[in-house]
Simulated assay, not measured.
Amino acid sequence: MANVIIDLRSHRAWNPAHLTAPLIEWPTDLPLVEFGSVTAPLSADSTVVRGTPVITPGGLHPVRGGIRRRTRKYQGPVFQVHESGNALRPGDLLIPPNPDQPVILVSEAHLGALVSSSFLAVRPVSVDPLWLWAILNCQTGRTVRGLHSIAIQGQGPDHSQAEQFPIPVHDDTWGSPLRSELETIERSTRGDEEEAVETWWRTVDLQLETEWRIVLATPNPAVLQDGEPLEAICSEIVRGRPAGHLSSMDLPGGIPVADIRVLGGGTARRWVSPEGNPIVANEGDVLVAAVGTRAHARAAAGVCAVDKNVYALRLIDADQGPGLARYLNGQAGYARRQILLSGVTVPALKKTDLSRFPVPGSALTDSRPEVDTRPLAIQLERLLWS
């Protein structure tokens, strides 16, 4: 949060985006260029009726970036992705109205896709699309987008045209190593999409069912039998607890607290003294979020205290930790976790449900390097300006 006192008598227009613009300082010496001078807006070229899969802002993944799911409920004007021409094509950008949602870089993987006209679709004219995608998705870029979107609510989709962003004058001002890393991050946002299941039905004799919540949560309860339960591969599953002697600064001999923010890729913000008797996780343990709908999981890189909203899984074979964390963060693990959640106001995962969480054997032997679980905005902010 930032506060500023402005004498409005010296301004002809009281546009909040313009009044608060001096508060935003880009952490770079690159020249600032108006967004509208390096992009050209695109117009929707088709319409659809309900039943057609369409990419909408609500179907984006707010943390990882990319497209989570498509909807079949949308009807109205759309963009269709073509290989070339004046219509939406690879290399163009889709900017959602909400700055907390990620900007999408259209690629060959989207050919033929239909996109809601709720997006501001633009074509980079004299700037590398990958650079512009990164600038708009980093934390500072989202802040700038947020200021302007507040100022123009209800005034149409062309609100970003006057905003200023740092743009390299020549392509050689940013080297190939940086571009390569940006390409890797952008590719990581293209995860498997969830199937857009709007409605389903099945015939069930509820007198024979012991868990109605499972029957009502999925058309295929059998997926909960596909794999080995977590309790079979863990020596212990324990939930963290509140601990005394917490500090917002690193204490001498203190232990960093692993909370849900840390599981999502952030850094520790609290430390606890060993005298506070915390639940402690060691390297090789897997940490899993106990509350919320996001499937955050992470293999502990070292000794840490376990927050009350986090489970610690002590594996019998610690080498299986990275593969298990990757599976729990992936699409299949996310879908199964949603089935087992309980609670309405604050969805939570009970210890008994986590214990029976099924994990395929192939996931435990996955030897790929662990993916970066930090939010997209944080990854880009640190890469661009470090």
Rank of each mutant, 00 (worst) to 15 (best):
V204R: 04
V63Y: 12
W201R: 15
W174C: 03
G85L: 09
T203M: 09
T365S: 15
A2T: 11
Y327M: 10
R70A: 08
V122T: 02
L383W: 03
A301S: 14
N277Q: 13
K308F: 01
V286Y: 03
G175C: 06
G292L: 06
V103C: 10
D317N: 14
S235L: 13
V144D: 00
V303S: 13
R298S: 06
T20G: 09
R9T: 12
R50H: 08
R294D: 14
A295H: 09
L93D: 01
I214R: 06
P322T: 10
R187M: 11
V238D: 02
C138G: 02
E231T: 08
V303E: 14
T267Y: 12
D192E: 13
H82V: 01
I260G: 00
G191N: 04
Q164K: 15
P96K: 06
I5N: 08
R89W: 00
G264A: 12
D171Y: 08
R239L: 05
V54R: 05
L216G: 11
P229Y: 04
A222K: 08
T373H: 13
V280H: 04
P256G: 06
R187Y: 05
L111I: 10
L120E: 01
L341F: 10
L88K: 00
L313S: 05
A258K: 05
D171H: 14
I150C: 04
P31Q: 08
E211L: 13
S188M: 01
L340M: 10
N282V: 13
V310S: 01
V4Y: 11
S116E: 05
S180M: 12
P177V: 10
I237W: 07
V115Y: 05
G227F: 06
H148C: 05
A325C: 03
L328W: 01
Q161C: 02
V238M: 08
I233E: 05
A332E: 13
L328R: 02
E83L: 10
V122E: 00
P27Y: 12
G66M: 07
G146K: 01
D372H: 04
H61C: 10
R145H: 03
P360W: 11
P124I: 08
T199P: 03
V33Y: 04
L132N: 03
V359W: 01
V106R: 00
Y311T: 02
L216W: 06
